[in-house]
């Protein structure tokens, strides 16, 4: 057992593309605390992770766990309270607007709502060309790039280029958002619930497209989703979050076949069985995730955990690397001598 260091967790793969450590964002809650103690939502609390070039990191968790906020903090769409972000070997914290702009061209994002994330008054070709234009690409060249990207996401530019977002279907709009994200030749793309709003048959088309584009443009993905099956399909490594904390991270096969954190185990066994003859009979968890305002002390999962003991309320479990390497868990049961009666039994 050793303290998990996100920089050291990648087995023999050199320098990570993105390394995040101590990332934190508390949102103050207005209007609820007349005279009382001020309330904060601990949306992202001391989150560490790294992404290596060419891989896909999946981030899963339920609503309010901080997965989308994490992506927005790294992109600096929201200003973090504290934490370091290293991208391509350079520190991003507190950079000037100019350096932020340079970094954002290398790091792009695709959002869930394909309609609200496109300018309704721009033809889609102009939307895709907009980023390159802002970054100084000549008009003709930017347009040419937009047409190439439309072809790359499977849309005929002669037919679709001058259309407006409302003239397209949800799946087509999401292809435009992906093309727009690729227009600045990014290395890293955050996909924030990018296929969640699509119908299943269209979702499969877009997932195939994402796999193709990753190879074609040499991309690295951070794939954020609440859909456990989609994350399993597309990810190389998985990060599981609960109420602003990372509870478990590891290679996708390890997380899905041998999860060690009780929350990961419950989350995975909440998936429908896909076999009507072997239906789920007992819900793996009771209740809803607690309110992220004033989360539980110690381990934040303890209020829903069937193994919770006194130590879980008192001490916050650190995210520790298991001896097998590359697999980190934040649970007192994994820590020898933590004071939990099951401590160290499992390892």
């Amino acid at each position: 057992m050793s303290q998990a260091t996100p920089l050291g967790a990648g087995p023999g793969r050199g320098e990570p593309l993105l390394a995040v450590s101590g990332l934190r964002k508390y949102f103050p809650v207005k209007g609820l605390s007349f005279g009382g103690p001020s309330l904060v939502v601990k949306a992202v609390d001391e989150v560490n992770f790294a992404v290596w070039p060419g891989e896909t990191l999946g981030i899963v968790g339920e609503s309010g766990c901080g997965k989308s906020t994490t992506a927005r903090l790294v992109m600096r769409l929201i200003e973090p309270d504290s934490g370091q972000v290293r991208f391509e070997g350079r520190e991003l914290a507190g950079g000037s607007n100019a350096s932020l702009r340079a970094v954002r061209s290398r790091m792009q994002m695709v959002f869930q709502d394909s309609y609200s994330s496109l300018n309704p008054r721009l033809p889609i070709e102009d939307t895709i060309a907009f980023g390159p234009r802002v970054h100084g690409t000549p008009r003709a060249e930017a347009r040419e790039r937009a047409r190439r990207l439309l072809a790359a996401v499977g849309l005929d530019s002669a037919r679709f280029g001058r259309r407006y977002p409302h003239e397209l279907s949800g799946g087509q709009r999401q292809r435009i958002n992906i093309a727009r994200a690729l227009a600045l030749n990014p290395r890293l793309v955050f996909l924030d619930e990018a296929v969640s709003a699509l119908d299943k048959s269209v979702q499969a088309q877009v997932l195939n497209l994402l796999v193709d584009l990753k190879a074609e443009f040499n991309l690295t993905y951070v794939f954020i989703s609440h859909d456990l099956n989609v994350v399993q399909y597309i990810s190389d490594r998985v990060l599981v979050m609960y109420l602003g904390k990372v509870v478990e991270t590891g290679p996708v096969d390890v997380i899905y076949n041998a999860p060690r954190h009780p929350y990961t185990q419950a989350l995975l066994s909440s998936r429908p069985s896909m076999d009507p003859e072997r239906r789920i009979t007992v819900p793996p968890l009771t209740g809803d995730p607690p309110n992220p305002i004033n989360p539980p002390s110690g381990c934040r999962f303890r209020t829903r955990c069937s193994f919770a003991e006194e130590v879980c309320a008192r001490v916050e479990p650190p995210l520790l690397a298991l001896p097998c390497g590359g697999h980190d868990v934040a649970c007192h049961m994994m820590v020898p001598n933590s004071g939990h009666s099951r401590a160290g039994q499992a390892s």
Binding site: K200, A204, N208, N229, Y233, Y256
Partner: peptide, 15 residues
């Protein structure tokens, strides 16, 4: 086209 675990690494048969 409904994704599940066994499909990892395969191309999805999209409609």
């Amino acid at each position: 086209s409904t994704v599940h675990g066994a499909m990892r690494g395969q191309r999805l048969k999209a409609i």
